[in-house]
């Protein structure tokens, strides 16, 4: 179905495309789930809308309410768009060093922005949001890191869509952030395809960024359940950038840097299957398009080395 009653109804039902050039063999195929085709351009439209609608259903969110969320990225943009259309006020808490593009994207959907100190990154934003929540008990914090409806969105939509389009799926690969995508779609797929392998791609930053992030490193989202995963890859900036550029050059897909990390893990498991002489259908998530990362210069850099240098010291997932 390609006709919808409203923009919000058009969340999900994204294309699944085979990557003929990047797939290692005729029977080891790699597939991209294009989540950048959602209304605000990222996979986060799914959990944002689902968290809001579930909160409406059980009465936590009622007309006139204010939504509060610590976020510097895609979830805030998705929540702000849904809040605008549904008539809620929304306050986003984000680190003061977040890029101008993100501030404008949130502001254009009508979100109010409260800055949190740069030190400690999103961990500090979470703390500031929790303080605001205590000061304003009537505000509703949906809290993507611990809200079961985040994973629930993927259990209800992302997982079923993939299985319907590709019943022969052998591997599901996605980035590890709030862990909602892997937990939700992972559980659904395992229930229906017991042998399916659920593969996490975790971003690995260089030492410089580790220094900036070390408060974040100890943070484990409440949603995370390691038993859902079959394995986990740690992908460095260099590999993430290399794969992001390969995806663009070879298959024409313009994606964000975290997608390059997921592709790197997908090609890792595909190569293992090929070596073992096994057929495989590997699905990975394209979480968003490259638009918000254009200013890094990685897409037009002369060489991969230059692109990697351009990304040095920056957070990309």
């Amino acid at each position: 179905m390609a006709r919808y009653d409203s923009p919000l109804a058009a969340v999900g039902n994204t294309p699944l495309v085979h990557l003929p050039r990047l797939s290692p063999a005729d029977d080891v195929r790699v597939w991209a789930k294009l989540e950048d085709r959602n209304p605000t351009g990222s996979i986060k439209d799914r959990p944002a809308l689902h968290m809001i609608e579930q909160a409406e259903k059980d009465g936590r969110l009622t007309p006139g309410c204010t939504i509060l969320e610590p976020t510097s990225g895609n979830t805030g943009i998705s929540l702000a768009m849904a809040a605008k259309l549904k008539g809620y006020r929304i306050v986003c808490v984000m680190p003061e060093n977040t890029s101008e593009e993100r501030r404008q994207l949130l502001a254009m959907w009508g979100a109010e922005i409260r800055s949190s100190p740069a030190a400690g990154g999103s961990n500090t934003a979470v703390r500031v949001a929790k303080e605001l929540s205590a000061e304003h008990p009537d505000w509703v914090m949906l809290y993507q890191y611990g809200n079961p409806d985040n994973a629930g969105a993927h259990y209800a939509t992302t997982g079923p869509e993939i299985l319907e389009d590709l019943p022969s799926i052998t591997h599901f690969v996605a980035g590890l952030g709030t862990t909602g995508t892997l937990m939700g779609a992972g559980r659904y797929l395992r229930e229906h395809v017991p042998d399916v392998k659920i593969v996490a791609a975790e971003p690995r930053y260089d030492d410089l960024v580790y220094g900036l992030r070390n408060l974040d490193e100890g943070f484990v989202p409440e949603l995370y359940d390691e038993s859902v995963l079959t394995t986990r890859f740690s992908v460095g900036s260099e590999d993430a950038v290399t794969r992001t550029r390969e995806l663009l050059a070879q298959e024409g897909i313009f994606a964000g840097v975290s997608t390059g990390a997921a592709l790197h893990a997908a090609l890792g498991v595909a190569r293992k299957a090929e070596r073992a002489g096994e057929a495989a259908d590997v699905v990975f998530i394209v979480a968003d398009g490259g638009w918000k990362y254009l200013s890094t210069g990685i897409y037009t850099a002369e060489s991969t080395e230059a692109a990697v240098a351009a990304l040095q010291g920056q957070l990309w997932a």
Binding site: T231, R232, F233, S234, D239, H264
Partner: peptide
């Protein structure tokens, strides 16, 4: 090869 050996 980037895969966590605790899962291997």
């Amino acid at each position: 090869n980037d895969e966590d050996v605790r899962f291997l």
